[in-house]
Write a protein that binds this DNA or RNA. Structure first.
Lengths: 249, 249
DNA sequence: GCGGCGCTTTGACCTACGTCAAAGCACTCC
DNA sequence: GGAGTGCTTTGACGTAGGTCAAAGCGCCGC
């Protein structure tokens, strides 16, 4: 049992590394030639945002792309009746708004700031100029979009088949990859980047229901929640949970 | 009221037209030069499938792409515990499996035949050869994937915020675009392309629950279900329904 | 015609989750 | 310090929808 945990943790760290190696705008920037890097740099406008601010709104015309330098942005979709859901989070290295820019539509989602963030803005024409001259950028964008699509379909599948509890644990598992670290006291420590309300929106539930799920998990043991800190003493909790709870029987 | 219905129906037909004008593999084929069209034709292998057959399975290596000539294919995702969900449907004109081909991964979904279908198979190397020589194909693929991503995010948002009933009505609305027609008796007639069981899988529910939703709608009036035929006498049903039923108050 | 098979509907029951409101906490501002 | 504000948790209650099993209903082959 102990050995298996060791392996699991190494596995987690490895995945973490793989994740950071993902295609980011920085990788794209570095592939530009000197001249285009200059164009890029001159076009980029840095701006600081604080929580609650809106970067762009659903339905707005797309004026350019935003690159997340630091912080955390949430992409939210509103339906006709005004209710909304958090579709995904964008963190350091990711680009926002390029989709609408590519196919010339208005923004499909609202980008809202969840934590103090620094973004670079690059206007439409500069981006298109660069994309025009660097054909390989299309390929990069294609693989980014493919990855996003796969992620979206994965969460879709989760929503179609799994209960709240399972989805929450899976969400914790993904946070453990991006915001987790080994801990001497617990086996694993996760620093949640967002508040309960937003966690709830990400899971399509209410803060109240989420709170109960958390209380339940804590009662059962293996995991402890203190504000935004999560201590996982049984890492299998995060990976083992499947839809039908067959393994708990 | 009557006038508004007329407008709505015209609107629907217009959207239907727009939909058929979407980027399909046929459009791509027609843009190839004579020589590449020949390569394309020679590489394509036609095959007939009947309901229940599996075109390719999740986890399998991707050997090439499939083009739907006629019929209907469902893309299904299984999770670790074996439960599955129908993520989307692919009909005439659409391509399957190109995603895994582009980024060189194994298939993420299982393609299952929902209605008697004719597919063309194009092997990996022929496709890559064509894509190599025709750079604009990347752009086409990019916009196809962007559209798919938007669709996926839209259903995701629906799952996060809406109740079964609303999602079902929205599904009917999309079917009305692809499989609906004006009808002299009812205002609108939809021929559902799939059976209840699959409808349920598409909505992430059980056939039993779906059956009750249908019975309920029928009791309230404005829509009638007879097997796979749906008669909509109040087209607003399909579009008006939003999450919180504010408008029914 | 009859039985047999898969799909769909119905019924009865139960649970997960939504909703609303109150109370508990943490943080800031005065 | 105390009041105010926003987030989170808890409680009480209602309901949508899951589950299982039985019954209805085409549809096919014989």
């Amino acid at each position: 049992m102990f050995v298996r945990e060791e392996i699991l943790l190494k596995e987690m760290v490895k995945r973490d590394y793989a994740r950071s190696g993902y295609l980011t705008y920085k990788a794209i920037f570095e592939r530009l030639d000197k001249n285009d890097q200059k164009i890029f740099r001159e076009a980029a406008r840095a701006k600081l945002y604080s929580p609650g601010q809106v970067v762009f709104s659903q339905g707005q015309e797309c004026l350019g792309i935003y690159l997340v330098q630091s912080g955390l942005i949430g992409l939210r979709r509103f339906d006709e009746s005004g209710t909304s859901a958090l579709l995904r989070l964008a963190q350091s290295g990711e680009a926002l708004g390029y989709r609408s820019l590519i196919n010339g539509t208005s923004h499909k989602n609202t980008a809202e700031v969840l934590a103090k963030s620094k973004l670079y803005f690059i206007n439409k024409s500069a981006f298109q100029w660069l994309a025009q001259r660097n054909h390989w950028m299309r390929d990069c964008l294609l693989s980014i979009v493919l990855r996003d699509l796969d992620q979206s379909e994965t969460t879709c599948a989760g929503l179609l088949t799994s209960k709240l509890r399972s989805r929450f644990l899976r969400l914790m598992a993904t946070f453990s990859e991006s915001h987790g670290e080994l801990d001497e006291a617990a086996a694993f420590r996760i620093e949640l980047p967002i508040q309960r309300k937003d966690l709830a929106d990400l899971l399509g539930t209410s803060p109240a229901a989420l709170s109960r799920i958390i209380a339940g998990l804590q009662r059962e043991g293996g995991i402890r929640f203190m504000g935004r800190q999560v201590f996982v003493s049984d890492p299998y909790l995060l990976t083992s949970e499947t839809t039908s709870c067959l393994d708990s029987a």
